[in-house]
Design a binder for these strands. Structure first.
Length: 606
DNA sequence: AAAAAAG
């Protein structure tokens, strides 16, 4: 199995403006396939990392002290599978949240269960070619050069050890570029395809930065029962925050960096207790964070890192006021005094413009075709009348069941438009002999998390979901995404189908299309064409028809929503972007829309 | 019009 995805990749011209590089002959090894690590005993290797890593401790447990020299002896590592740590390094560690860390459970344990349930991962038949020749683009001032290996980056031994524990062999494309940029302290707007390792891309630099500055950074004030996180990671759904937290905990394991999650629908007291134990990195959904801020249980004044996952979603109409409030109207340091990183697979232009408010001279990074689906997903569109949808779904599921191997559960994720629709379809599937669960915003948080677990484990291999599950969730083994109801926005479609075809695996996405979706015809047809999918002739006819009234549909969002926009960043070839303008750190409209190929239409920015 | 996010 290829382990080196980018050994021959060119370095991006440092200092270039509008630099464009193409990682040549790459063999991308996605996260979940990196289970052939060099044989390192990752659990017993002594840790010797730079000096002291630090917990941002609560004062009650001996938190930050003005000398910068942390007290406390070697930690009691009862859960890490190693009884003797590598000596002195641990001795200067801050044990500000000793109690918390003594309890730090091994976050790598859960992995094993899933692997067992689904059997060993196959490493054959993966289409690594899909990652060859992946277009990468950076723009901004003095863009740091990408790296080819984790070893090239000074992340620190403790973090490197966790990377090995995660079985990451080589950085993914977005990681190769984003990590050096972030480590250089630069603000970043990063676009990368679904399932390409974005979480690690912003977590590694944050964890590393917190570790490195542990003795030099300013000290948090001592305020009883108030937590002072150094980093804030916001995401649009509770389950995604949960997932980021789980992942970040792995990366931060035994680094002394403490990660806490806070989201709604769960008992706040548990979260408050966790916060009181000390928090370096806070992962949160906006609503619960605002609550915590209002209760004065969290202060953002020490924030040095701000990461928005699914950033375009976080800045769209529904979320923007809340995000502005958190980022601009509380006590968070302004751009320039904090490092801000925005990540998403899609990034509409108008949202990019909005995002500039939160950034300071940032680097724009695009890996792959922005807003595009990956070639690993086979996309099908079928014309299905509203009244026929259920029986059609049944046919698909029957066929799938017939084809599927006995032991292997092929997970199917079915997206519907409404919460009521999700309930109804789940019920209907169940009474027709298909074990299904449903997840949507009217379910209790317990029900939501149970449904997701039940789906992941294969207990209910069908999950009916609203858009709550459309973004970011990493659910291994989803073989099929069905858009029972198509979304109105092509970006939502991109995120939905991105739940399959992850980690280098192929996936299937089937959409039920009818007259109700005519507004999506054109963007959908365009997207499929870019992804080298077969576009049915009838869909093209729909597209041509909707094209006629296209100017009208702009009225919905931000005055003009340009459906042509950036679904294919690469339509005319990424290389042609070389002339892009940089204006105050962001890509100006002229450069942005220029070079986008034959279908270029007036930019929404113009 | 719907979904999400606080309770």
């Amino acid at each position: 199995m290829p382990t080196s995805w980018s050994d021959s990749a060119e370095k991006a011209p440092a200092g270039g403006v509008g630099a464009t590089t193409r990682a040549s002959r790459t063999n991308y090894v996605p996260p979940h396939l990196r289970n052939r690590p060099p044989s390192v005993d990752t659990t017993s290797a002594p840790v010797s990392h730079y000096g002291a890593a630090v917990g941002n401790g609560h004062q009650g447990h001996g938190g930050p002290n003005p000398t910068g020299i942390r007290s406390g002896g070697p930690r009691n590592d009862s859960s890490g599978g190693s009884s003797s740590r590598g000596g002195g390094a641990w001795n200067n560690r801050n044990n500000g949240w000793d109690h918390g860390r003594a309890r730090e459970s091994n976050p790598f344990q859960d992995e094993l269960d899933t692997e067992e349930a689904f059997g060993a991962q196959e490493n054959t038949g993966i289409n690594f070619d899909a990652y060859d020749d992946i277009p990468v683009e950076t723009s901004g001032k003095d863009v740091p050069a990408p790296v080819n290996t984790f070893a090239e980056i000074d992340l620190g031994e403790a973090l490197n050890l966790n990377i090995r524990r995660c079985k990451y062999v080589k950085p993914t494309p977005v990681q190769r570029y984003a990590i050096p940029i972030a480590l250089a302290g630069r603000d970043l707007m990063a676009c990368a395809q679904t399932g390409s390792g974005k979480t690690a891309a912003f977590c590694f630099p944050i964890i590393s930065g917190i570790m490195k500055s542990s003795q030099s950074g300013p000290r948090a004030p001592r305020v009883p029962r108030m937590a002072f996180p150094l980093a804030l990671i916001l995401s649009p759904t509770r389950e995604l925050s949960l997932q980021i937290h789980e992942e970040a905990r792995k990366f931060a394991y035994q680094t002394g960096v403490r990660v806490v999650v806070a989201y709604g629908g769960a008992p706040i007291n548990l979260q408050l207790r966790e916060l009181e134990r000390g928090v370096d990195i806070l992962v949160a959904t906006p609503g619960r964070l605002v609550d915590l801020l209002e209760r004065a249980r969290v202060s953002l004044q020490m924030i040095r890192y701000l990461a928005l996952d699914e950033a375009d979603r976080m800045l769209d109409m529904g979320f923007e006021p809340q995000i502005r409030r958190i980022v601009q109207q509380m006590d968070m340091p302004p751009p320039g005094l904090r490092q801000t990183m925005l990540f998403s697979a899609t990034f509409p232009k108008e949202i990019q413009r909005l995002a500039a408010d939160f950034l300071s001279t940032y680097v724009f990074l695009a890996v792959g075709r922005v807003g595009s689906s990956t070639d690993l997903i086979v996309q099908r569109v079928e014309y299905v009348l509203e009244t026929d949808k259920r029986s059609h779904l049944m046919d698909l599921l029957h066929a799938q069941r017939a084809n599927g191997d006995q032991g292997k559960q092929a997970l199917t994720l079915v997206f519907v438009e409404t919460k009521k629709g999700a309930d109804a379809l789940e019920h209907w599937l169940c009474i027709n002999g298909f074990p299904a669960a449903a997840i949507h915003g009217d379910r209790t948080q317990q029900e939501r998390e149970y449904a997701l677990r039940s789906f992941k484990s294969g207990k209910t291999p069908i999950l009916v979901a609203t858009d709550v599950a459309a973004r970011g969730l990493d659910i291994p083994h989803v073989a099929h995404v069905v858009n029972f109801d198509l979304p109105n926005d092509i970006d939502d479609y991109v995120h939905r189908i991105g739940r399959t075809g992850r980690a280098g695996k192929t996936g299937l996405a089937t959409a039920f299309f009818n007259e109700n979706n005519s507004s999506l015809a054109r963007p959908l047809a365009d997207l499929m064409q870019e992804a080298h999918q077969e576009v049915p002739a009838w869909l093209s006819r729909f597209a041509a028809r909707s094209n006629f009234g296209r100017n009208r549909r702009g009225g919905g969002r931000f005055g003009s929503r340009d459906f042509r926009r950036d679904t294919s960043f690469n339509r005319g070839g990424m290389d042609s972007y070389g002339g892009g303008h940089i204006n105050n750190g962001y890509v100006a409209s002229g450069g942005y829309s220029g070079g986008y190929g034959p279908t270029t239409v007036t930019s929404a920015w113009d």
